[in-house]
């Protein structure tokens, strides 16, 4: 009966995940490997292909501030921000569907999201990446890693640590149903700074961890120690977030006119 409960929980989280996140890993991998009847993504690999791509890709967040005349590196950085804000909205909706989450102290709900959202953003970004680049605009475009690396300092290094993490993480070959539970586990971490009431958070996470372990055993019977390997990735994710925050601090120092979205300002303030 306990296993049955864990399977119901896994199914519930997977359904919530599909409702909350429009671009699934399954869709992204189909596009990246050419196993889809949809149009191939527009490949952006230099300034000319970027300009062509901007005409071809229809997406609200391509020009979020309506500033086509902004410098390319800053424009791309702004688009990353807009996508991050949208991701925070999606993750919040997903979190509210984790059984027990909305019954937690409201301050703790805020803390869990504040510390969890970027770890989840970089987990899900890995689904859109391969070693050569990243899908953008819901799979309409593919921006190469080399092009991102060629952007002027300090923007050129901004995505490298995310690619390095993605290559290692994608080697685990998780699918969307695994990721749904893993993301819930990340949100319900009882060791986030400033939590008021840790016990109920740890209780929910224990239940989620049991569901995740069973899910991985059933979905990946030949992959030994996958559960342990995946838990290890949570440490790596914290490192990626720490580096990301350091990059942002550098960018805010060197780019005096750089504005940060108010939602991201809230999240980054006193983060690490």
């Amino acid at each position: 009966p306990e296993c049955a409960d864990q399977r119901v929980l896994a199914k519930h989280l997977y359904d919530s995940y599909l409702k909350s996140f429009p671009t699934t890993k399954a869709k992204a991998r189909a596009i990246l490997t050419g196993r889809t009847t949809d149009k191939s993504p527009v490949v952006i690999y230099d300034m000319n292909s970027l300009i062509r791509g901007e005409d071809q890709i229809k997406c609200n967040y391509l020009t979020p501030y309506g500033e086509q005349n902004e410098e390319v590196a800053i424009r791309i950085f702004h688009r990353c921000q807009s996508r991050s804000v949208e991701s925070v909205r999606e993750i919040t909706e997903f979190a509210k569907n984790i059984p027990g989450f909305v019954n937690l102290d409201l301050n703790d709900q805020v803390t869990l999201l504040k510390y969890g959202v970027h770890e989840i953003i970089f987990t899900m970004l890995a689904s859109l990446m391969n070693k050569d680049g990243v899908l953008i605009a819901d799979g309409q475009g593919f921006m190469t890693r080399e092009f991102l690396k060629s952007l002027r300092k300090p923007f050129g290094e901004f995505m490298e640590s995310k690619f390095e993490f993605a290559v290692r993480f994608n080697a685990l070959e998780l699918d969307d149903s695994d990721l749904a539970i893993f993301i819930a586990v990340i949100i319900l971490c009882g060791d986030r700074p400033g939590l008021v009431n840790v016990k109920p958070i740890e209780d929910i996470q224990d239940t989620l961890l049991q569901a995740l372990e069973l899910q991985l055993k059933m979905n990946h019977p030949d992959s030994s120690q996958l559960f342990a390997k995946l838990l290890q990735k949570m440490t790596d994710l914290r490192q990626v977030v720490t580096e990301h925050v350091q990059y942002l601090q550098l960018i805010r120092k060197t780019e005096v006119d750089m504005d940060l979205h108010p939602l991201l300002q809230e999240i980054y303030k006193d983060l690490y």
Binding site: T92, K96, N97, V110
Partner: peptide, 21 residues
Amino acid sequence: LKEKHKILHRLLQDSSSPVDL
């Protein structure tokens, strides 16, 4: 804490309600 995170707080309070399991 929620006072310092007005937008996050609003996202948590607004929009769609949670699904019962």
